[in-house]
Amino acid sequence: MTLNIADPVRHTMQQILSWFAQGFEASTETDVLANLDQAQIEALAEDCGLSPHQLLGLVKAGPHAADEMPQVMRALNIDPDEVDYQMRKLFRDMQIACSSCQSKDQCRHDLEAGTIGKTFVDYCNNAESLNSLRANPDLLMER
């Protein structure tokens, strides 16, 4: 296979555009929320089943703040799609907990190192829920 010199340039440009789009997406959501009055924020939070404080925290955390959660689930042999389907409220609550996590660097490191199965209980906001899900054979991925 010959590598076209334009391929690395195209890949780099796509990466930059992706970073820009993610930043724009997050800033747009924050800007929209900033333009709402307190009553509108409270109504929106209630519609989402959140407190206004939780809603503001989620928006500030950004749209990818819980991206690690499904990765951790898969590493623990838990099917995130099945959990989302069967236990929507729990899945959402776990996303909220993950988005406010202060141990993201440790989590990402452990995911990369393949040690998350041994270490998550030490710092993960969702450790108790994850262990409970691991005990349910209906929620495990097929191997």
Rank of each mutant, 00 (worst) to 15 (best):
E42V: 06
D105L: 08
P80C: 09
S129Q: 11
L36G: 07
A6Q: 14
F20C: 04
S27D: 13
N136Y: 01
A135F: 05
T2G: 13
L130N: 09
L44E: 05
D122F: 05
Q54V: 08
R92L: 05
A135M: 06
M13P: 05
R88T: 15
S129E: 08
M141G: 15
S103K: 15
S103E: 15
W19S: 04
G114Q: 15
T119A: 11
L58Q: 07
A39N: 14
L17G: 04
A66V: 06
D105E: 14
K89D: 15
C98Q: 06
L76T: 08
K89H: 10
S18V: 04
A97Y: 03
L3R: 14
L50C: 00
H64I: 06
K104D: 04
M73E: 04
N136C: 09
R10C: 10
L130T: 05
M87C: 04
L56S: 15
M73K: 06
D93F: 01
M73W: 04
N35C: 09
N125D: 10
A127H: 09
E112Q: 13
R74C: 10
F120K: 02
R108G: 06
T12L: 07
S132H: 09
P63G: 15
Q95F: 03
R134K: 15
I41H: 01
C101T: 09
Q71D: 10
Q71K: 13
S18F: 04
Y85H: 13
D67H: 10
R134H: 05
S100W: 00
M94L: 04
M13C: 11
R88L: 05
L130G: 06
E128T: 14
G117K: 03
L111A: 01
P63T: 15
Q15R: 13
C98W: 02
M69A: 11
M69C: 07
V9G: 12
M87P: 03
E112W: 00
L55G: 02
S100K: 02
V59T: 12
I41W: 00
Y123W: 04
E68M: 08
K89F: 10
Q15I: 07
L90Q: 11
L76S: 09
A75C: 04
L3Q: 11
A21L: 05
E128I: 09
D105H: 08
R92M: 13
E142F: 08
P137A: 06
K104R: 11
L44T: 10
V32A: 10
M1E: 14
P70R: 03
Q14M: 11
A61S: 13
N131V: 09
W19Y: 10
G62T: 08
M13E: 14
A6M: 13
L140P: 05
C107Y: 07
M73Y: 01
N131F: 06
E142K: 08
C124Y: 07
H109Q: 09
T12W: 02
L17A: 07
M1A: 15
N131Q: 13
T115H: 08
E46Y: 03
F24R: 12
Q15A: 12
A34C: 08
C48E: 12
L90V: 12
L3P: 07
I5G: 13
G23W: 01
G57K: 02
D110S: 10
M141L: 12
N131P: 03
L139T: 04
D79P: 00
